[in-house]
């Protein structure tokens, strides 16, 4: 008989070693502070269904009058810009500090208490990334202030009247592109480029080959 067969004790030691590796794995495992709560499909869905995404400048009027106490405004700009001027009552969390444990906990507590969080930066674009990020990790109470601080600064005395103003809305064409940017000569000019354009599409990622 072979040594291996006679000695289950050795096998036991090897298995215990295996167990130790797994236990080490459990202890060294990175536990992320945040996890994706929305799948990619759900994320694209919330981008299309905009009813729950935006906070309009005219809605600010209620918050600033302390009529609507269920809203917390967060300023994502740096401390310097915040010091120069900010929306009254806004809390300053510079965007680079967003992942800090304390700030994430704060946001979680807001979510638990059903408080709407409104993010803003100088303009909508600057707050857009962090906003979409927090929506994807499950903070469904986070909205983005349309127009950003720039728009607020320009209209801070007549916020309630901005309801009819649409100049801060993004994503809509401001020009009739086809009319402004094209002409017959364009087609003539681009005829040169009419030869087929070849783009390289990505190849599948290689997997390791092997066998036994």
């Amino acid at each position: 008989m072979h040594v291996h067969e006679l000695n289950p004790k050795k096998t036991l030691w090897v298995l215990i070693l295996f167990l130790i590796v797994i236990i080490i794995g459990f202890f060294t495992m990175k536990r992320p502070l945040l996890k994706y709560q929305l799948s990619l499909k759900q994320s694209t869905k919330i981008l299309k269904d905009t009813s729950n995404n935006y906070f309009y400048p005219y809605q600010l009027a209620n918050v600033l009058d302390h009529k609507n106490k269920n809203v917390v405004i967060i300023d994502l700009r740096n401390k310097y810009a915040y010091g120069l001027g900010h929306i009254p009552g806004a809390k300053s969390i510079p965007s680079f500090n967003l992942t800090q444990k304390g700030n994430v906990k704060l946001l979680k507590s807001y979510k638990k208490n059903g408080i709407t969080v409104v993010l803003y930066a100088d303009n909508q674009l600057d707050a857009d990334g962090p906003w979409l990020f927090f929506r994807q990790v499950g903070f469904c109470n986070i909205k983005i202030l349309l127009g950003g601080y720039d728009y607020y600064e320009a209209h801070k005395n007549n916020l309630a009247q901005t309801k009819t103003d649409g100049s801060y809305l993004k994503g809509i064409p401001r020009f009739n592109y086809a009319k402004v940017a094209c002409s017959k000569t364009v087609t003539a000019a681009s005829k040169k480029a009419k030869k087929p354009v070849v783009f390289h599409r990505r190849k599948k990622v290689a997997v390791a080959a092997g066998g036994c």
């Binding site: 060294t28 495992m29 990175k30 997997v207 390791a208």
Partner: peptide, 21 residues
């Protein structure tokens, strides 16, 4: 041992199972 081990390694983030042949 391999089967159980691979599942644990994948769970710990040490191994990407989608790259296994």
């Amino acid at each position: 041992v391999t089967m159980v081990g691979l599942l644990y390694l994948s769970y710990f983030g040490w191994l990407n199972l989608s790259q296994i042949f």
